[in-house]
């Protein structure tokens, strides 16, 4: 497999499809629409890359997940469910427990909330707190020197996927919150390994169940099979060398979207067979 760069969307600026200050998170809906969260708004793009909508958020958002016809947006101390035009449907307000929500993953009535302030994962069911996740496997909490804890839901295996940067691995939790698998190790020369002090920085999953892991210094998106075999890596010059904590999302046609935190862009790749 390989990543082929298709196009660059958005960027930093005043144009309608751009973000002025920051772009923080991406999600792809079932109809392959891309939602990009940044500044204090959400912008949506068609799979051809055209801006098709925009709405404001009540506060600065740090994470976003799509589920059916709704979006979940992680903020400071809360997660808000909105429709695709921004109308609020529900909210989990839990400022006593939650800090900055930098990751959110939805599985039916369950919501896994990644909290970068407390370096912890919280599982909510039907909007109510159910339990902490990952504490048994990680007795010192999640080690995230980069300041971001991410989460994604893999529909194929019905598990949550989490990047654990300082342990150089991807962890997988079932819907009950139990650790069921992990893969990854430290290394610099083998592309299957994660280098530096704290990689992978974030994680995502394609609808086909391919795991996406982002790395900083130098920045990449890497693709792995469900059981952790390395498949492909984005080209060396795809991102600004100082980019990090890239948000990542993918659609049904194998398009992979990843943010560049320095340029404020969304880089679009096609994940294809190596022969194509």
């Amino acid at each position: 497999m390989k990543f082929r760069h298709l196009q660059t969307l958005s960027g930093r600026g005043e144009a309608p499809d751009q973000f002025q200050v920051r772009i923080t998170a991406l999600a792809v809906a079932a109809d392959d629409r891309l939602f990009a969260l940044g500044d204090r708004c959400v912008k949506s793009f068609s799979s051809a890359g055209e801006l098709v909508g925009q709405f404001d958020t009540s506060d600065a958002g740090w994470s976003i997940a799509a589920d059916g016809k709704t979006l979940w947006i992680g903020m400071q101390g809360r997660v808000v469910q909105v429709d695709f035009t921004g109308n609020v449907i529900a909210a989990i307000d839990d400022p006593g427990r939650l800090g900055r929500v930098t990751g959110v993953a939805v599985a039916g009535d369950s919501l896994l909330v990644a909290d970068a302030t407390h370096k912890s994962l919280s599982l909510y069911r039907d909007g109510k707190y159910a339990r902490e996740v990952g504490a048994k496997a990680n007795t010192r909490g999640f080690m995230i020197p980069n300041g971001v804890l991410s989460a994604a839901y893999d529909r194929q295996s019905e598990t949550f996927v989490v990047a654990h940067p300082q342990k150089h691995r991807i962890e997988r939790y079932d819907r009950g919150g139990e650790l069921v698998d992990k893969f990854g190790r430290f290394g610099h020369d083998d592309p299957a390994a994660f280098g530096g002090c704290c990689n992978p920085t974030t994680a995502g999953v394609t609808p086909a169940g391919i795991i996406l892991a982002t790395e900083k210094a130098p920045p990449h998106v890497k693709a792995f099979t469900a059981d952790g075999k390395f498949l492909a890596m984005t080209p060396e010059d795809a991102f600004d060398p100082s980019a990090k904590n890239q948000a990542v999302a993918a659609d049904k046609s194998g398009r992979v979207y990843a943010t560049d935190s320095v340029r404020g862009t969304i880089e679009v790749f096609q994940l294809t067979d190596a022969s194509q």
């Binding site: 080690m143 020197p145 300082q166 342990k167 150089h168 430290f186 610099h188 280098g195 530096g196 002090c197 704290c198």
Partner: peptide, 12 residues
């Protein structure tokens, strides 16, 4: 970050 594998301590 008090990292386990500090790139300033180890030759990574």
């Amino acid at each position: 970050g008090r990292c386990c594998i500090c790139p300033a301590y180890f030759d990574v």
